[in-house]
Amino acid sequence: MLEARLEQADLLKKVVDAIKDLVQDCNFDCNDSGVALQAMDNSHVALVSMMLKAESFSPYRCDRNVALGVNLTSLTKVLRAAQNEDILTLKAEDAPDVLNLVFENTDSDRLSEYDLKLMDIDQEHLGIPDTEYAATISLPSVEFRRICVDLMALSESVSIETSKDGIKFSCAGDIGNGAVTLRPNTNVEKPDQNVEIELTEPVALTFSLKYLVNFCKAAGLSKTVKLCLSNEVPLLVEYALAGSSYLRFYLAPKIGD
């Protein structure tokens, strides 16, 4: 059986909220190392890869590998019943029809229990190659969100260019052009505000802003976001979570002129 207890329901609520507009039905693959999810959007342009490591739960028990086929819209309805600070426990049998969710508020001695019906999902899994990215940029997640939202007001696409001097986001639209350049910047007192650039070669790629704005719904999960780029490969956008867990998004580039 599976039994996984999260100190705060907030984490799962935010993860599901961040991905539910991108993917609808997906398997939560549970094994002794944790709970993983990999799913592509309908157009096969973006991919969500979530890993909640066993260490992120306390306690965590998973006797047998189990895939929990969940409709995220339905899960959202159930999670709405959990307060952010509630202790959340996920439970399932070895061959489950339902996922049992328990929300506890230890202050008020409230215990809520929900059973979510599961579905059989035949999910297409992709092998994501280990990539040595040419550019890795770490920046505040709210800054990245602001840039994407601002540029989307002008255009559907953004060009991202990185050099050792900085990272430049630019777009061209019907009403005009826009560009934002961030230079490497270290703030000793507020390390969350740092912009860090590691570069082995310059990169220039074009991406759909619609997807990037969607990924930015995860900004509430982490103060910083990491962008990993290499020419002609999908962009990796990573939000690191506590306990080496993560929420990653991959986005295929736009190619050719």
Binding site: M40, S43, H44, G127, S157, A252, P253, K254, I255, D257
Partner: peptide
Amino acid sequence: PPTQATLGKFFGKP
């Protein structure tokens, strides 16, 4: 204009 690629072009079957 550039065209949107899909992930299948880059990521194979495991």
